[in-house]
Write a protein that binds this DNA or RNA. Structure first.
Length: 584
RNA sequence: GCGGGCGUAGCUCAGUUGGAUAGAGUGACUGGCUACGAACCAGUAGGUCGGGGGUUCGAAUCCCUUCGCCCGUACCA
């Protein structure tokens, strides 16, 4: 709950405003400065202080004075007594540069100590419920690199949301119905026939799944149940093939994801929606509301109108909307089967209406971006406000590199690298950190040759090393010198004098802000960047400042600082699902 | 055509509400342990922020325009 950055910022704003009012009362500044919207930021260069206010520049127009003159009047009437700051300077075009004093540094250490593993938490969610649906890979084959990325992204996002006051539910949507299951069944059936007749030249579906895993499924089926399916009607045999394949694949997926550190609250079957008539019911509701029409024997959703309505509501002009190339969607095909889109609308109606989640977040591959707006619009059409209550985080795909050159991945041709194979090669820690190392909007290259031999290559080791180094340091001081980590109340932050110490405390204070931004932008890769930077600040501190042999007050303060860093590193790594080792 | 993503150092990428001299990692080069963990640190070199225009005290960031790469635009899922 304690956000030291925010409270310092608030103080800058309050101090500046109070100074303005005093200056205005004294007649030094004209009236009209109350509404000045000054930005308060942390300068990149510490020579410009710890916080900078743009009050003087922003107010130049309203006050009809030169920025630097305004700044001088503010400084003359500033009252820093009792605040976090002990110095203010005017610089550049009129920046007011505030420098933090020891009180603030001490309070940062206290905040981490008091809040411990909860440090960095917020309450943006306010107890609202959110479902994060992620991975949801087709159960027709093993999971690949893209699923590995989506897995960490969703899992970490769920962790971060929970820290921000949301009640989080994690779900895997299993597409156990529809065309690709049919294709799956036909693929197994073809391999099965090849096995039964001992003839590899028997025909295999043109669009079938060619992976080795399909052969293995067929072989297992043959070994368990024999060759009798050959004699059954094809329809029955295909049903059995699909059942057998799913019953083996789904537990395998659960197992792989568990190994990867991911466990769901629920695996939700698409077939549940079909079986109880919920897809049909949802389509009926859309029809009742007048959003559908029949054409060429199929039932269509008037997506064009729904999207126009949505875009206009979002502020686009009629002209902009008119030039869009919009198309309607089929909900029920001429053959009577519902489309995937219809099932998806029903599934999200289930999330928002039946299960009453306040918010639904989906992690999707960027190749599905064309469906984002139309799904939201369809939910709008159901009166569920999908444009706001459904958030789709698009994730750019993973490029697999081999010898520095891209390899085309495809489940159909069986050329993808499976998640479980990957985890045989590299640790869960390394994989989870690696796949969370880029914003979801950036494509991510995955070079297996590099990943396999990576040790120090992966920044996860840099962060973990900092943690292990501190553990070792703390243990050693306790053992050899009998010095324990002191309570924050016993530390005099005024002894922090080096730039390394001050920078390190400021990094610690940045953590709640980073978590907040990670949830706001649905971008948990920020945590990686933060942790790497914090570890770097620690390593620099460690090289610049000794502990052993220093006088008691300095030793105590530095030891407390190091231990506080340890706590925050562990805190962040925990959110990523990465271990914080004491030794390595 | 329409829509989405991207374009920043040799390479991979950061850059929060517009801010002061545009950063990090990696690669290259030069240094630092009889030292609390060298899986570490310090330094040097490397840039027309794809190009052009505009908005203003101030633009990598906002607007317009243009070029290039990836993706989507199914009675597939």
């Amino acid at each position: 709950m304690t956000n030291m950055i925010q409270s310092a910022k608030d103080q800058v704003a309050a101090l500046t405003q109070a100074a303005y009012e005093r200056a205005a009362a004294a007649g030094v500044l004209p009236a009209g400065g109350e509404g000045v919207k000054a930005t308060i930021e942390i300068p990149k260069d510490t020579a410009h202080g710890d916080y900078a206010s743009s009050f003087a520049m922003a107010g130049a127009k309203a006050l009809h004075m030169a920025p630097r003159a305004i700044a001088q009047a503010i400084v003359d009437h500033l009252e820093l007594e009792g605040s976090y700051f002990n110095k203010v300077e005017i610089a550049g075009p009129g920046f007011l540069n505030f420098t933090l004093g020891p009180k603030w540094y001490g309070d940062v250490l206290s905040a981490v100590e008091v809040e411990g593993p909860a440090y960095g938490s917020g309450d943006e969610g306010g107890g609202r419920t959110v479902m994060v649906e992620f991975v949801s890979a087709n159960p027709t084959g093993p999971m690949h690199m893209g699923n590995a990325r989506g897995g960490v992204l969703g899992d970490t996002l769920a962790n971060v949301l929970a820290r921000d006051g949301w009640k989080v539910w994690k779900e895997f949507y299993v597409n156990d119905a529809g065309n690709q299951i049919n294709k799956f069944a036909r693929s197994i059936y073809a391999r099965y026939q090849q096995i039964v007749w001992k003839d590899d030249t028997l025909p295999f579906p043109e669009d079938g799944y060619q992976g080795e895993d399909i052969r293995e499924l067929a072989q297992a089926l043959y070994e368990e149940c024999g060759g009798d399916f050959i004699n059954e009607p094809e329809e029955d045999a295909l049903f059995q093939m699909a059942q057998f394949g799913l019953e083996r694949n789904i537990p395998k997926m659960k197992e792989d994801l568990k190994k990867y550190g991911i466990e769901y609250d629920q695996w939700y079957m698409e077939s549940w929606l079909h079986d109880r008539g919920f897809v049909a019911d949802t389509v009926q509701v859309l029809t009742d509301k007048g959003w559908t029409y029949e054409k060429d024997g199929a039932l269509w959703l008037n997506t064009t109108e729904l999207l126009k309505k949505k875009y206009m509501a979002e502020g686009r002009s009629q002209e902009q909307v008119d030039k869009l190339d919009l198309k309607d969607d089929v909900l029920r095909r001429a053959n009577g089967f519902y489309t995937y889109f219809a099932a998806d609308i029903a599934y999200h109606r289930n999330k928002l209406e039946e299960r009453k989640f306040d918010l639904a977040i989906n992690i999707w591959g960027a190749d599905h971006h064309g469906h984002v707006a139309r799904l939201q619009a369809a939910l709008d059409g159901l009166g569920l406000d999908g444009s706001r209550r459904l958030v789709i985080v698009l994730m750019q795909l993973v490029n697999l590199l081999q010898d520095g050159k891209p390899v085309r991945m495809s489940k159909r041709t069986g050329k993808a690298i499976a998640l479980h194979d990957l985890l045989d090669e590299i640790s869960v820690d390394a994989a989870r950190y690696y796949f969370n190392n880029r914003a979801s909007s950036s494509p991510l290259d995955f070079d297996l040759d590099l990943a396999v031999r990576q040790d120090s290559e992966n920044p996860v080791y840099y962060v973990q090393y900092a943690h292990a180094r501190i553990c070792s340091l703390v243990a050693r001081l306790a053992e050899e010198d009998g010095v324990a980590v002191p309570a924050a109340a016993c530390v005099d932050a005024a002894v922090f004098a080096t730039t390394e110490e001050l920078a390190l405390v400021k990094s610690l204070a940045q953590y709640p802000e980073e978590l907040h931004l990670a949830t706001r932008d649905y971008d948990p890769s920020r945590i990686n960047r933060y942790l790497t930077a914090l570890a770097g600040d620690f390593h620099r501190f460690y090289n610049a400042c000794r502990l052993k042999g220093e006088e008691a007050a300095v030793l105590a303060a530095r030891l407390k600082l190091a231990d506080t860093v340890r706590s925050v590193l562990a805190n962040g790594l925990n959110l990523l699902g990465v271990t914080a080792p004491e030794k390595m």
